[in-house]
Design a binder for these strands. Structure first.
Lengths: 142, 142
DNA sequence: TTTCTGTTGATACCTGGTATCGTTTGGGTA
DNA sequence: TACCCAAACGATACCAGGTATCAACAGAAA
């Protein structure tokens, strides 16, 4: 779990103000655990206006500590992350847990593939769906 | 462009009825070209009820002739495709055009990566953003 | 032609997200 | 410490995507 200090420092370092609503939302999101929806974030910070929740979530995305996760069903989830660099997600269909991973190898392969098609690649998005180790052992036990 | 016959046959073959609203929506989507939003589909088939548009789009996804495309900004686009097998998308940020591609190599790599994390991979989603060949030559010309 | 089931459209509702706009506030400066 | 102002805020309205409900309708098989 990313510390509140880290999150707050990232905001401050980017030149934005560290306001009370932002602090409250950060705390609320941290309490939600490692994955949550926009609506859960809104619910979890009742003293913070809806618009501000979305504004702050966008801000956190901009400074690289919150990332969007495209779920199996196309819905969008969110996840706090310490790791600001580009990465991908492993998403458990069972429990919803998300994990980050990076793979330079795949990156290179994609760039090469794009070149072959005359496509100038600027970015990409890769989500992997399945069942995480914890849920797997859980299932085996039954 | 996928033919209307192909699309209609896919529906019939899956045991669903080929109704007038479904035919109209298919025609409307074909007229929209190779990528469109849900709202555009709704607008393009004014004689078809909104709920039916969404139901039919889900049906077409189920039979593998319509796919969701997650755009750069997180919005969802749609694309008719003849290619029912799993594939990925090249999405042009300039003109919005989407292209399909498949790559078994990447697939294998992902499965291996998942195994290493104890993650039992069931599926994935890969979207590549950039500038397509046509837009590239267009930009060079300026 | 009847019948039955799949399908439809209207409607209401939910979630995610943005735009607007008048008010508040953080934090640098006098 | 008080002042100031841009940044941030909240309420609100709005938009898009999507689902649930339910009474009415229509393919297609008997």
């Amino acid at each position: 779990m990313v510390s509140a200090q880290t999150l707050e420092r990232r905001i401050a370092d980017s030149g934005r103000r560290l306001t009370e609503p932002r602090r409250q939302l950060i705390e609320a999101m941290r309490n939600l655990g490692d994955h949550f929806t926009a609506d859960q974030a809104v619910q979890a910070a009742p003293s913070v206006g809806r618009a501000t929740v979305f504004r702050t979530m966008r801000l956190l995305q901009d400074v690289g500590v919150l990332c969007q996760v495209v779920l199996d069903n196309g819905a969008i989830g969110y996840r706090l992350t310490a790791n600001a660099r580009h990465h991908h997600h492993l998403i458990c269909s069972q429990c919803g847990a998300t994990d980050d991973f990076a793979s330079g190898g795949i990156e290179d392969q994609l760039a090469e593939l794009g070149r072959q098609c005359g496509f100038d690649m600027h970015g990409h998005r890769l989500e992997i769906y399945g069942v995480c180790a914890a849920c797997n052992t859980e299932l085996d036990r039954r």
